[in-house]
Structure formats: structure tokens, C-alpha cells
Simulated scan of single mutants.
Amino acid sequence: MSFQPTIPLPGIAGWRFLERTQAAQQAAFDKGAELKRDIAYFEANIGGVTSAAELVGDRRLLKVALGAFGLEGELDKRAFIRKVLEEGTTEPRAFANRLTEPAYAKLSEAFGFGDPGGARTGESGFAARITDAYRTRAFEAAVGETSNDLRLAMNFRREMVEMSRGPDGANWFSVLGSKPLRQVFEKAYGLPAAFAKIDVDRQREVMRDKTAALFGTDKLTAFQDPAAVEKVINRFLARAQIEAGAAAAGPASAALTLLQNASGEASQGLFNLLAARS
């Protein structure tokens, strides 16, 4: 039986516990037999794969390749993934570049099948880079079986490091294209469900305005500061915990909604208390 990460508490308390114990829990998780078999197989065989067709034709290799980029749910979409890989990323109209989710372009660029330099699978360190990413993502997925909110928080912390290093402001569209990142930002910033339906340029403007109000700049470079990343995560988890508590109230939730509509002071006070650590 594989190791299942322990998350004894919900929300911010659970996040604090996970931060303290993550290294030890990840180490225990990495010893799982299935994970070790997947990684060993990938490292032994990926160097001989020189085309997208070969990769998608081997389900065990494809499982690791997709999992390393958070695309494990696409394992059965082999024709789709082959097109992503074969067209590369150098041309603006390449298939991966036209998809909203940025993970596809990252996958295609990493393997290089459709780019001028060709397959990167035989490069020194390639297999290790992919399997390291696979371990990380697999652990996050295991955390998500207990708390999807904490999985989203872990993904946000990791992804924003990369996003914040891009051209100033340009990568807001990448944020908006990433469903996991969107979920964290939207809840942390208190945006309604209808937000996703408005014009994408307006969405970027709102995200920039909210970020500027909190951090003094509307650019993603704000998240080069780990404290800024942690502040967004705290706000996200606080709101998620408040919403979960309201939902658990059952019939009482209707009365709670009326009270909140009349005066948001109590819930806002709780939110401020929970989000104070940043």
C-alpha cells in the first residue's frame, strides 16, 4: 500500500502542518513501489524515444511525461497529445500555443519533438528533470485526495515562482489560462463565479488592479517575494474554509446568508484573522 500524506486539519492550520512536514512526507511518498517502478521505467527507456508517435505509443512513458506537467488526466487523449508534441512551440500558430492551458506548451517545449533542435529526450539530465517534476506532482495529487484546496495551494506556490520571472504583465494571460492558478486567485481576491465569463482583457485588468491594491504593483514580479505568494495562499485558504463552514451548516446556511448580506462584519473579521499571517 502506497504512503498517503497526512493532513489532520483543514484550511490554514492544515497548510501550516503540511509546510512543517512536507519534506518528510515527500520522502516517504517517494518510496512507494508504483512510483519507483514508473520512474525507473521512464529513466531506462525515454532516451531511445525520438518522436511524438513513439512517446504516445508507450502508455507507461506517457503517464510520467504528462504527470510531470499536471496533465495526467489527458492520458487517453493520445491523438491530441501527439499533435501538441509534433507541432512544437516555435511557431506562434503551433497547436500548443493556441491552447489556453499553458501546460501543453511547456510539455511540447520540454520534449522538443516539433522544434528545430528535435527531440531532447537523449540530453544529459533530461530524464531526471522530468521524473523530479513527476514526483512533485504525484505528491501534490496525493495531498489532493485529502484536500484539493491544499493541492491548489502547493501548485500555486510552485508555479508562481516561474510565472513571476516572465515579462512584466505579459504572463497574466498564462495565469488566466491555468485553471488551478485561476481558482486560487479568484477565491483569494473574492471574485464571483461569473468572473470567468467576462472578456479576457477585462479579467486581466481586474487581476492587475487587485494585485496592485495588495502589493503596490500590478505585475507578476510581485510574486518573486515569497511573502506575497503566501499572502495569496492564506487568503485563498481562509475564504475556502469559511465557504466550507457555511456549506456544512445545512439548513442554517440560509439564515447565515441573510446575516452576511445584512452585515459582512463578522465573516470579514474571521477572514481577516485567518489571513493575517502573510
Rank of each mutant, 00 (worst) to 15 (best):
A153L: 02
M160G: 02
V229L: 02
Q260E: 05
N171I: 02
P226M: 12
N171G: 01
S164G: 13
F223W: 05
L191A: 01
V200L: 04
E205Y: 11
A252I: 14
V200F: 08
L259Y: 02
Y189W: 04
A249S: 00
F185D: 06
A248T: 09
A193H: 12
Y189F: 14
R202H: 14
Q183E: 06
L214Q: 15
N234F: 15
Q183P: 06
L237F: 07
K197R: 06
L181D: 00
N155R: 10
L220W: 10
R182G: 12
R157T: 10
A255G: 06
Q260N: 14
E186K: 04
I233M: 08
R158G: 13
P192F: 04
S164I: 08
A249F: 01
E162P: 07
V232D: 06
K197C: 08
G216P: 04
D218S: 15
E265L: 13
R208V: 06
L220R: 06
R151H: 10
L152C: 07
D225G: 12
L237T: 08
V229N: 03
S164T: 07
E230A: 13
N261Q: 09
R208Y: 06
L152M: 00
F173E: 00
E205S: 13
A227G: 14
A246F: 09
T217D: 04
M207I: 04
R157A: 11
K187E: 02
F156H: 05
R239I: 01
A246L: 15
S263P: 10
K210Q: 05
R158Y: 09
L191C: 06
F236G: 13
G264T: 08
E162Q: 12
A227R: 13
P251Q: 09
K231A: 09
M154D: 07
E159C: 00
G166Q: 11
I198N: 03
G216Y: 05
S174G: 13
N155P: 03
P167N: 11
R151Y: 14
N155D: 11
G169M: 14
S253L: 05
L181E: 00
R235E: 09
K219D: 06
F156D: 00
G264S: 14
L214F: 10
N155Q: 09
S174L: 08
V229S: 06
A249V: 03
P180Q: 13
G216K: 08
A249W: 00
